[in-house]
Design a protein around this nucleic acid. Structure first.
Length: 548
DNA sequence: CCTGGGTCCAGGAGTTGCTAATAAGCAAC
């Protein structure tokens, strides 16, 4: 069980206590403990003496033990049982926290998302204390968004179900197909192709809950849910047609329709040939007009994790990271990278312990000392670059005086505040930051969180044009919650010659490996090795940041 | 619920700014 999974029920309990009008300090204690556990570098287990952690005493210790044992604890279960279940959905509406949800519940009896919507539509919310016409309107807007997220999962949250599904299908040859094989950002269900003797669905495959069957392109499927609420579709095929069936079920529709008209084949490559297409990487099949240009797409030399030499945009204990600078650097080096860009938060972002100028100097001194040690220790070539994730302030300026900005090797500029700007204002803000001569990389360009937050609206074309004009790279933030720049804009970045930097934005050692999600997204947009900033060698990257 | 001194109970809250309200809740990593 990860620390995050332990923290979740604690966090939820804090909200439940607020919602039910419990002692606010008690709620705060749960929230504090959750945050502390989330931020710890050491993973909690039954053996950990959690009472040694500041903010966790006897009570929380026994509750954490309960979570480790069964994923929940009595206090949480009792609280959950004491409220109408739909209120947890109301809490997910952006702009509504426990306090406001409680007011809605107690004064208007709102217990579900539907009731909330009805009350807002009837104009009954605007009159409540603490609410107004604007918040009533924003509730309606955010319900629409929330509904569009429901039933979907970020790919990284869906993928962990795969080992369980394949273990249930032991004895069958199975392959992941569908949206997950094409590496979409988020999926509604997981698709697997299962080879069976006769192409029919044997009874063994009917273990899915609420199973329904059907047929598509002549292939029979069974669809249902598994524990955890994940929707799964198993499509059956005979082994001699497995290649064609894989191509059809992988999709998208334009490919499926063409491939469905080809004769059976056990090879996906051959099936493509029969359809008059050249085989391409599944991720590429969503690109604009992909089905009409498979020849060109097949010739792309897509970037892989192994092509990356640098790991840029990472955090350490100098701001809100869990591991020290040296721990992060050693972890990067042991993964075979030859350079690390450390980019802790800048001074304005207090919530992430952003670095004041003194801290910056201290970090730069440590970087210098570590680099000297790395140069002498006889190990593989390795260098730490002194960077910063500078906040882009409201007016588009960076977060330090010029002399401090000049002291960094490179700068990732990102927006973390004021997400409610108009598209014109947000674009202008980014373009101003891009024009700043100290900006090297534009970080997570829209600020979106997949299935959670839309981010600020931007004119991608104008932003990419500005990057091209000012020699600024654009980040493809590899965190599976972000994947921002979205893959749909990678091709335009390539056309304009804007380097794409695949950055894990790691706040702990194991998050360095999130890079793989970014690489999948980059490949989906056709990114090739020379077009990827951190595929540059150490010498090339050194030259890149030194360019005028 | 935790901490800390009063060893049972008082007093407590990662910070700051925005939003949309007219005081306080929410969101940013």
């Amino acid at each position: 069980m990860t620390n995050k999974e332990i923290a979740r029920p604690l966090k939820e309990t804090a909200a439940l206590l607020e919602l039910t009008g419990g002692n606010p300090f008690r709620a705060r204690a749960f929230a504090n403990a959750a945050r502390t556990i989330e931020r710890m570098d050491e993973r909690l287990s039954e053996q950990t003496d959690v009472t040694e952690i500041q903010g966790i005493g006897k009570g929380l210790a026994s509750q954490i033990a309960e979570i480790l044992e069964r994923g929940s604890f009595d206090v949480r279960d009792d609280l959950l049982g004491s409220i109408p279940p739909g209120i947890m959905d109301v809490l997910k509406v952006k702009g509504l926290g426990a306090k406001k949800a409680r007011v809605l519940w107690k004064s208007l009896g709102i217990q579900t998302l539907d009731e909330l919507e009805a009350a807002a539509l009837a104009g009954r919310i605007a009159d409540l204390d603490g609410f107004g016409a604007r918040s009533q309107e924003s509730i309606l807007e955010n319900i629409v968004l929330l509904r569009s997220y429901m039933g979907r999962r970020r790919l990284a949250d869906a993928a962990p179900f795969l080992p369980y599904i394949t273990s249930e299908l032991e004895g069958y040859t199975t392959r992941v197909t569908g949206d997950a094989r094409r590496h979409l950002n988020d999926v509604e269900r997981l698709d697997l192709l299962v080879e069976t003797d006769d192409g029919d669905i044997p009874g063994r495959l009917m273990w899915l809950m609420d199973a329904e069957t059907g047929e598509e392109h002549g292939l029979r499927w069974v669809e249902g849910t598994i524990e955890g609420g994940m929707t799964v579709r198993l499509t059956a095929c005979v082994p001699s047609d497995a290649g064609r069936a894989l191509a059809i079920t992988t999709g998208p529709a334009a490919f499926a329709e063409k491939l469905a008209r080809t004769p059976p084949s056990d090879s996906e490559q051959d099936a493509f040939k029969e359809a008059g297409l050249t085989w391409i990487d599944p991720g590429l099949r969503d690109m604009d007009g992909a089905v009409d240009r498979t020849d060109a797409l097949a010739s792309l030399h897509l970037v892989t994790v192994e092509d990356l030499h640098g790991c840029l945009h990472n955090h350490s204990t100098y701001s809100d990271g869990a591991h020290t600078l040296k721990e992060m650097a050693d972890a990067c080096r042991s993964r075979g990278y030859s350079y690390l860009g450390i980019c802790d938060h800048s001074q304005s972002l207090k919530v992430a312990n952003g670095m004041d100028v003194k801290t910056v100097k201290r970090q730069q001194a440590e970087i210098k000392a570590l680099n000297e040690a790395y140069a002498l220790d006889g190990g593989p070539e390795f260098k730490i670059f002194s960077g910063v994730e500078s906040d882009i302030l409201n007016d588009g300026s960076l977060d330090y005086e010029e002399e401090v900005l000049a002291s960094f090797d490179f700068i990732v500029a990102s927006v973390h505040t004021g997400f409610n700007m108009s598209e014109a204002a947000a674009t202008e803000r980014l373009v101003t930051a891009i024009k700043n001569p100290y900006t090297s990389i534009l970080g997570h360009p829209t600020g979106r969180l997949i299935l959670r937050r839309e981010g600020y609206p931007i004119d991608h074309e104008a932003v990419l044009q500005a990057c091209a004009a000012h020699g600024v790279a654009i980040e493809l933030n590899a965190n599976p919650w972000r994947l921002d720049l979205d893959w749909t804009w990678v091709e335009r970045a390539r056309q304009l010659g804007v380097p794409v930097s695949i950055n894990p934005d790691a706040h702990a050692i194991d998050q360095i490996d999130l890079t793989a999600w970014g690489v999948r997204a980059a490949r989906k947009g056709g990114l090739q090795v020379p077009e990827c900033l951190n595929a540059l060698s150490l010498a090339e990257f050194t030259a890149w940041i030194a360019r005028s």
